[in-house]
């Protein structure tokens, strides 16, 4: 019984974390058709930024709960700065190029950003674990959960909900859908597609940085964390269907629960779970669970 509860809660926590990490990637792909390899770097910058800001904040001796605000502020600053620089300074010149070339552009950006992290923060790990302990724990018999982990579930729901409302219930969302559906037609109707792209990319970048910032208190932030996250986020996005936000949510849940089940019941297969799920889904439903098929041009 306890094991079942553990699988459920652990699965939800891991799924929420995955969703927070992957949602920015899928948003950018959905709108711009760009598979952003540098998403991992945004995650890493978010984590480093958060660790740094929480560190400064804690040293200043201000109200401890404010540290949470620091996480969000760090994600916002990192995401906006890097997002604008990358979109305006680099990707803008690539839109007429092949999709795969753009993947390589973001791969190049990823390589550069990896070393930039090293130049800014050095190679020693940083940590900002203060917020992690602050929320206390919840106990169910032998099982102890960290409330910070549980709060990730809330964060994931909030982020997913806000995004859903923004896309489906606002003017900006309507424009976005028009651009997703037919870029040229939207332009003809006077939509400023270029601005929609910039905004989307920046929002996606902030989400990527937020994933990192929210992870920062749980981990020791170290060079190379971005690499590990890219493949995970890709897998989730592919499972859910590239570009679909609800898909990312379902994909995260499937991966999260299967992984938690593996850890508790059969730890040997933990490493495979995510790729097994991914290949299974792709073989049965190539476009992913929520993916759309594209019409072929004649």
């Amino acid at each position: 019984m306890l094991t079942a509860i553990a699988i459920g809660v652990d699965g939800l926590v891991y799924a929420s974390w995955l969703f927070l990490v992957a949602v920015g990637l899928t948003l950018i792909f959905g709108v711009m058709k760009i598979l952003n390899v540098a998403h991992g770097s945004l995650y890493a910058f978010g984590a480093y930024g958060a660790a740094t800001m929480v560190g400064i904040y804690t040293q200043a001796g201000l109200a401890p709960l404010g540290a949470f605000a620091m996480l969000l502020v760090a994600a916002l600053i990192v995401g906006v700065v890097l997002g604008v620089v990358m979109e305006r300074g680099l990707l803008r010149f690539m839109y007429q190029r092949d999709e795969v070339i753009i993947v390589l552009v973001t791969y190049a950006a990823f390589l550069v950003l990896e070393d930039l992290i090293k130049l800014i923060w050095g190679v020693d790990p940083y940590y900002a674990s203060e917020p992690y302990g602050l929320l206390g724990i919840s106990e169910i018999s032998d099982l102890v959960f960290s409330n910070y982990d549980l709060s990730l579930i809330v964060m994931a729901v909030v982020v997913g909900g806000l995004l859903w409302v923004a896309v489906n219930r606002t003017r900006w969302g309507k424009l976005l859908q028009a651009v997703i559906h037919d870029r040229e037609m939207s332009e003809a109707f006077g939509i400023n597609v270029s601005r929609v792209y910039t905004v989307t990319f920046v929002v996606g970048a902030v989400l990527g940085a937020l994933g990192g910032a929210l992870t920062a208190p749980m981990i020791s932030v170290t060079p190379g964390i971005g690499v590990e996250v890219i493949v995970l986020a890709f897998a989730v996005v592919v499972i859910g269907g590239m570009g679909s936000v609800p898909g990312a949510a379902i994909g995260s849940l499937i991966v999260g629960i299967s992984r938690a089940a593996a850890v508790h019941l059969l730890p040997e297969v933990e490493l495979f779970v995510i790729y097994a799920v991914m290949s299974g889904v792709l073989v049965l439903r190539p476009q992913g669970l929520f993916g759309q098929t594209f019409a072929k041009r004649i």
Partner: peptide, 14 residues
């Protein structure tokens, strides 16, 4: 910074 050198080269090439 060899990664940066590789990444920069790739960008310039593209």
């Amino acid at each position: 910074t060899w990664q940066m050198v590789l990444g920069g080269t790739l960008l310039l090439l593209i």
